[in-house]
Amino acid sequence: MEDAPKTPATTPRMVPIWLIIGITVLIYGVAIAVTGLVNWNHPAPGVAMTRLHADFWWGLFMTAIGLFYVLRYWPKKNP
């Protein structure tokens, strides 16, 4: 078992949940967009509507959302 913190005066600050969400969505978005790009000319068999390349565009959309949250909630240095 971990001991209780010995310096209560320096209670750690919690990373904002929005930053964790941003990083997760960003990583997933990049992975999906790259997969969509790789499969652009080789759509998965049995999947409908592949002509829209939804994977690539959705991946880009997620990347943008993730990036927004990461930049918005990235911890700023104390003055």
């Binding site: 992975a31 997969t35 499969n39 998965a44 049995g46 409908a48």
Partner: peptide, 12 residues
């Protein structure tokens, strides 16, 4: 999901 989501999207 099987019908519309290809690799990557299906994982999501």
């Amino acid at each position: 999901m099987c019908r519309y989501l290809g690799p990557g999207l299906l994982g999501l």
